[in-house]
Simulated assay, not measured.
Amino acid sequence: MSTDRRRIVLFDLFGVIARHQRPGSLEKMAARSHTSLDAFTTAYWAHRPPYDAGRHTASAYWTDVLHALSRPADADTIEELRLTDIDSWSRVDDRMVSYVRNLRDRARVALLSNIPADHADAFLAAQSWLHDLDHVAFSGKIDAAKPDPAAFHHCVTALHAAPADFLFVDDREENVRAARAVGMDGHVFDGQEELAAVIDAWLPGSAGQ
């Protein structure tokens, strides 16, 4: 068991280190499904939670989406939609990646993201910096998605730490509230400069302490 008691900055991925979904992607998938954007968007998000939380496979998710749209769920359509979806969430903010990597000189750094298992595999393959972090927790791999307390407890256990050792950073207020409810500190992300000041003040030995 690790005896490293340095503080831990636990990052969300999308909207913090990675970009939100690529513009135009939902329109592209809706066209491939031969349905309207509004109908596709509703089905896409309505069936997402069990896929994010590792309870549904990609095939089951896309079958549910297509059936909700009264469209055939053939294997070729499912695979094309799956790959388009993965690509739509593939962009990162290079400045934030550099900041996160450099932060490891001062703190332990981990990641907690709501992302399906097959998306997680693609991200791990494409983004080598993820392998340098102290822990990476993807909801589709740990069978728990934020704001479920189980997702935060997974990170506490995996890093042999206490909740008070963590500062959780996410762009969604409800996820930050959930982290605080389990005993972590939390910050709603609104830009790198503000975040850097918050972390500087939070880490022991910094000027803000």
Rank of each mutant, 00 (worst) to 15 (best):
Val9Gly: 10
Leu10Arg: 07
Phe11Pro: 10
Asp12Arg: 10
Gly15Lys: 12
Val16Ile: 08
Gln21Leu: 13
Pro23Asn: 04
Leu26Lys: 10
Met29Trp: 06
Met29Glu: 05
Ser33Leu: 02
Trp45Arg: 13
Arg48Ala: 11
Asp52Arg: 09
Gly54Asn: 03
Gly54Glu: 06
His56Tyr: 07
Thr57Trp: 01
Ser59Tyr: 03
Ser59His: 12
Ala60Arg: 13
Tyr61Lys: 03
Trp62Tyr: 01
Trp62Asp: 01
Asp64Val: 00
Leu66Ser: 00
His67Phe: 02
His67Met: 02
Leu69Thr: 02
Pro72Leu: 03
Ala73Arg: 05
Ala73Glu: 05
Ala73Ser: 13
Asp76Pro: 00
Asp76Asn: 05
Arg82Trp: 00
Asp85Phe: 02
Ile86Asp: 04
Ile86Gly: 04
Asp87Ala: 15
Trp89Leu: 06
Trp89Val: 04
Val92Gly: 01
Val92Lys: 00
Asp94Gly: 06
Val97Trp: 11
Val97Arg: 04
Tyr99Val: 01
Asn102Gly: 14
Val109Tyr: 11
Val109Thr: 02
Ala110Val: 06
Ala110Pro: 07
Ser113Met: 07
Asn114Lys: 05
Ile115Phe: 09
Pro116Ala: 15
Pro116Cys: 05
Pro116Gln: 09
Pro116Thr: 04
Ala117Arg: 14
Ala117Cys: 09
Asp118Cys: 07
Asp118Tyr: 07
Asp118Met: 08
His119Lys: 02
His119Met: 14
Ala120Met: 05
Ala122Phe: 02
Phe123Thr: 06
Phe123His: 15
Leu124Met: 14
Ser128Val: 09
His131Thr: 15
Leu133Trp: 04
Leu133Arg: 03
Asp134Tyr: 03
Val136Asn: 02
Ser139Glu: 04
Ser139Thr: 04
Gly140Phe: 05
Asp143Phe: 12
Ala145Gly: 13
Lys146Glu: 12
Ala150Phe: 08
Phe152Gly: 11
Leu159Gly: 08
Leu159Ser: 08
Ala161Ser: 15
Pro163Thr: 03
Phe166Gln: 06
Phe168Lys: 06
Asp170Val: 09
Glu173Arg: 15
Glu174Asp: 14
Val176Met: 09
Arg177Gly: 00
Arg177Ile: 13
Arg180Glu: 15
Val182Tyr: 13
Gly186Trp: 13
Gly186Lys: 14
Val188Asn: 07
Phe189Val: 12
Gly191Thr: 09
Gln192Ala: 06
Glu194Ile: 10
Glu194Asp: 15
Leu195Glu: 02
Ala197His: 14
Val198Gln: 12
Ala201Gln: 01
Trp202Gln: 10
Trp202Tyr: 09
Leu203Ser: 01
Leu203Cys: 03
Leu203Trp: 04
